[in-house]
Design a binder for these strands. Structure first.
Lengths: 124, 124
DNA sequence: ATAGGTGCAAACAGTTTGCATGTAT
DNA sequence: ATACATGCAAACTGTTTGCACCTAT
């Protein structure tokens, strides 16, 4: 059975309170303020467990480490610049915009991620 | 000025002929059949250059190395299983299904990637 | 001839794992 | 008391880079 620990609670709270997706390193260094000797491996173990429980989701962008964000039922749309690889969050109500996919039998959809590629104002 | 080489041509052709996204390692081992001493670093250098020119696109899936696929104007929709991380290509006419996004000024959209998360028949 | 490309090996970055110790239950 | 959790360091994997040699221009 899983066990409640200071570290686990802190990591969960940190990622929940963040208003943007965090890399494990960002998560770790933020959490260090509360528990100064928190191990990076512990951070990875918790974030991985949370992702397996679908409490958080990992999102991957080209050339950047995986970022994790809290699952609040509201899926998000992101924009990646092909030139500078910067990441932008688009303020779009995705549930209105997303296609209603017909999945092959046996596939259960639990969420979606729409990544738009292109060039940002600085690079176009 | 860029120079035409056997290696560069081979890597471009290999990725173009592939019918699914390839990791640099897959690309390399395929190309090895033609040029047995082709270096892995050379493969990376070419694939990176092709991606910068938008001749290919890199797609990242959680926990897996970046895969590169030929850009043929037809963007694809993929499905990732949250449990086994396997990757499935969905046969969906994306141009019909994709939302018509209103982008903030200055952003130029050149493509999109729709990733659906969920559970595949084996895992659900 | 010469600048860019190649192969190899070493360096790097992100992530995972082994293990002795600590700690919720 | 006993298993699970932690911290540290070492191991791994994927990717990049330095450099001497090679080759298309």
């Amino acid at each position: 059975m899983p066990r409640r620990t200071r570290q686990g609670t802190l990591i969960l709270e940190t990622i929940r309170k963040a208003k943007r997706p965090l890399t494990p390193a960002e998560l770790h260094s933020t959490a260090l303020k509360e528990i100064p000797n928190l191990g990076l491996a512990t951070t990875y173990r918790h974030v991985k467990a949370l992702a397996e429980q679908s409490v958080v989701v990992g999102v991957d962008y080209p050339g950047q480490p995986t970022r994790y964000e809290w699952v609040d039922g509201q899926d998000k749309t992101h924009f990646t610049c092909r030139a500078c690889d910067k990441l932008f969050a688009l303020d779009i109500n995705q549930s209105d915009e997303l296609p209603n996919l017909e999945m092959p039998p046996g596939f259960v959809v639990s969420g979606g991620e729409f990544i738009v590629y292109g060039f940002c104002p600085n690079c176009s």
